[in-house]
């Protein structure tokens, strides 16, 4: 089975998303981390509740898929999703995952209390966006081109006032759309370098195994089979753009025969359509694992 498993980051969460998560697993995680997952809208304003909640949801789905006899050949996490991706491909152990994610959330919560965030520009190439960013970016008002989610979709990260300036320039220069995103942290930019260093230190005693397949890195958009780049991605992806479009491009070279989209949300519909056409896909945000498992097995046998 040559399947690509994709794990989104923050953005698609909703209150009640944990209701079908295996109770034993949830209890174990709450004990392990010494916290109670509230699964409410107001709880998801808190970074730890949000990040641990999303990863719990994804890990539970991975476990259910594995119990159904399914495994990935390629994994791609987006931002926070890299942890579940590393887990699914056999590199990161379950308990390590939750401890590290909690620490990541705590570090991120304190990093940029106010005045910073992210934006998005649609309809210009990355080179064009970088040229506009270069016009605005200054040490006192930093802004960077960050995540590349599709060929014509570039995120911005930095100080909100600087982001607003780039947004204005983008609209004047032919962007189809340009605006702020509801993200309160300048993720995936050099402004997060310190968090990356701290997280790497926190991960120093975490053992990683060689991926049992292909792991696609956020920080370089590469397909890797070794531990070192996986470790770099987990600890440091916050300081680098998520080169998601490149990840999907190189994943395409492996000719997967199916794509499994893990919860929460369906953020990658456009770029997956562009790269993979009508390749078989299942969406665990809308379909139970058992239904997904049925379809994937049917497709592998080559029957429709």
């Amino acid at each position: 089975m040559n399947s690509l498993w994709i794990f989104p980051g923050q953005g698609g969460q909703n209150a009640g998303m944990l209701q079908n998560v295996d109770k034993t697993l949830r209890g174990h995680v709450e004990d392990l981390l010494g916290l109670k997952l509230l699964d409410t809208d107001s709880a998801y304003q808190d970074s730890v509740q949000l990040q641990v909640g999303i990863e719990l949801l994804q890990v539970a789905q991975v476990n259910a898929m594995q119990a159904a006899g399914l495994k990935p050949h390629l994994v791609a996490g987006h931002s926070l999703g890299v942890f579940a991706a590393a887990y699914a491909i056999g590199s990161l152990a379950q308990d390590d995952l939750f401890r590290v994610v909690k620490r990541r959330a705590e570090l991120m919560q304190g990093a940029y209390p106010q005045g910073y965030g992210m934006g998005v520009v649609v309809g210009l190439s990355r080179a064009e966006v970088e040229a506009l960013v270069a016009q605005v970016n200054r040490p006192e008002h930093p802004v960077y081109a960050s995540n590349q989610n599709a060929e014509d979709q570039t995120a911005l990260s930095g100080e909100l006032a600087a982001i607003d300036q780039v947004v204005t320039l983008a609209k004047a220069n032919g962007a189809v759309l340009a605006r702020r995103l509801k993200v309160p942290v300048p993720s995936h930019s050099p402004l997060m370098a310190k968090v990356g260093t701290q997280l790497a230190a926190a991960m120093a005693d975490v053992t990683l195994q060689k991926p049992a397949g292909i792991y696609l890195t956020n920080y370089s958009g590469r397909a890797v089979r070794q531990v070192a780049p996986v470790r770099e991605d987990l600890s440091n992806n916050l300081a680098h753009p998520v080169y998601f479009e490149a990840m999907m491009g190189v994943a395409h070279d492996y000719e997967p025969d199916s794509i499994v989209n893990f919860s929460p949300g369906r953020p990658f519909r456009k770029v997956l359509g562009q790269k993979f056409g009508d390749l078989h896909q299942v969406n665990l945000d809308q379909m139970s694992v058992s239904d997904a498992a049925f379809l994937l097995t049917k497709w592998e046998r080559g029957t429709y």
């Binding site: 958009g221 590469r222 397909a223 490149a246 491009g249 190189v250 395409h252 070279d253 000719e255």
Partner: peptide, 13 residues
């Protein structure tokens, strides 16, 4: 063609 992305990346690297 079938490996064009990875070929580009590996040449760059």
């Amino acid at each position: 063609g079938p490996q064009s992305t990875r070929v580009s990346q590996m040449i760059a690297d």
